[in-house]
Amino acid sequence: MSAIHCRDLCKTFHQGEEEITGLDHVSLDIEAGSFVALVGPSGSGKTTLLNAMGGLDRPDSGEIVLGDTRIDTLDQGELADLRLNRIGFVFQSYNLVPVLSARENVEFVMQLQGVGAQERAARAEAVLAEIGLEGLSGRRPAELSGGQQQRVAVARAIASEPQLILADEPTANLDSHSATQLMELFVHLNREHKVTFVMATHDTRVMRYARRVVSLQDGRIESDQRTPEAVE
C-alpha cells in the first residue's frame, strides 16, 4: 500500500527573467513503512519534491496522493490540517520555538490537534524518554546541544503520530556522532512505529541507513535503488 504517490509532478521557479526547473515530470510511489532517501546535489529538486509531498508547496502540474487523499488540490486551510494530523516535519536547522521548553515544543503540535493536557504531557514525556532526552524536558532550546535540539524536533514530529515524516537535511548541522545517533533513532522509530520516513539529503552517512535511495538531478529522477544492505 502506498504511503504517498506522486505522478508527473512539474514545478518551475522564476528568478528574475531566469526560469529554473524544480521538478520535471517526477513520478514516485513510496510504500507505507518505508525509509527513503532523496539524494542529489544542491538544486536537484529533492527539497522541492519534499515540500510538495508535505503540502508546503504546490506543483505546477501532476498529482500527489497521501494515503487516499489527493493533496495538490486542497486549499491552504485543508493543507494546514493535513500537515497537522498526517505529516511530521524535521528540518535542517532544528526549528524549535525558542520560548518553549523541550516538552512544550513536543506538545505544541498535539495542542494544535486538540489533545487534552494530561494525555499531551504523558505522550511528550514518553517520546522524550524514548529518544533519550528524559531529564531535559524542561530546558529551552538554547540550553540544548544541536543534536539534542534535533532530537526534540524528531520527538515533536512523532508525538503527533503522523503517517509520514519528511526530513530535510536533518543531519546537515550535526557532527558525525550526533548524526549517527539521529539516524539510529530514525531507523528505530521507522521499525517500531511503522512510520514512513522520507529524507532529503546529500550526506553520504545518511544514505546507508535508507532502504531505498532515490537520486535526483535537474528536477528528474536519475535512479531509484532498493538497498537491502541498509544499516538496521
Binding site: 508535505g54 494546514a80 500537515r83 497537522l84 516535519f89 528540518f91 526549528n95 520555538v97
Partner: peptide
C-alpha cells in the same frame, strides 16, 4: 518570520 513559517508548516492555521 522563520518561526511563523515553522508553525505554519506544523499545521497552525493562519487564523491562529
Amino acid at each position: 518570520i522563520r518561526e511563523i513559517g515553522l508553525m505554519q508548516a506544523l499545521g497552525m492555521r493562519p487564523g491562529l
